[in-house]
């Protein structure tokens, strides 16, 4: 078994594609009509065969209180790994992205949290460098 997709609930799929594509830099992988909405996924251009991110419509009535509660407490819906949190913070801030947590270095990792404009907070993280394994 493997994880091939993960998802965020978005309030508008077109807006989400614009943000996750044009702003964050992911590329569209699947865009399939599915029951009034679309099976819409994006992937990082450098890892097109990796885990996809599904931009899932948030129409179910349970989703709104879930998103509202998480966002109020600053809790991210998911987390993306980056090489340089400070560089991404500067780049995204320049594009008008709102951060609820500025870059924070603690415990060997750096994190920040921003608003995806589709009703979610997203964490970016620079994970500790893993020592190369010797063969």
């Amino acid at each position: 078994m493997r994880i091939y997709v993960t998802s965020v609930f978005v309030d508008d799929q077109d807006k989400a594609l614009a943000f996750y594509g044009d702003v964050l830099g992911f590329v569209k992988k699947h865009d399939i009509p599915a029951g009034g909405a679309r099976w819409l996924t994006v992937v990082p251009p450098e890892d097109p065969e990796g885990t996809e991110l599904l931009l899932e419509p948030d129409g179910h009535p349970a989703v709104e209180p879930y998103k509202t509660g998480l966002v109020a407490d600053g809790i991210p819906a998911t987390s993306f790994a980056v090489d340089d949190v400070h560089a991404e913070f500067n780049r995204l801030t320049g594009l008008g992205v709102r951060f609820t947590q500025e870059p924070l270095e603690a415990g060997g990792v750096t994190t920040a949290v921003f608003d995806d404009t589709c009703g979610n907070l997203i964490q970016i993280i620079k994970l500790p460098d893993v020592a190369p394994t010797t063969g």
Partner: peptide, 28 residues
Amino acid sequence: ERDGQTLFELCTRLAMKHEVTSSRQAIS
């Protein structure tokens, strides 16, 4: 150190910098 934080950021700081293992509810 930084004024104006979300609950999530405070929990992150407590866990990562101070090894505080309390739940988010306890911090709240």
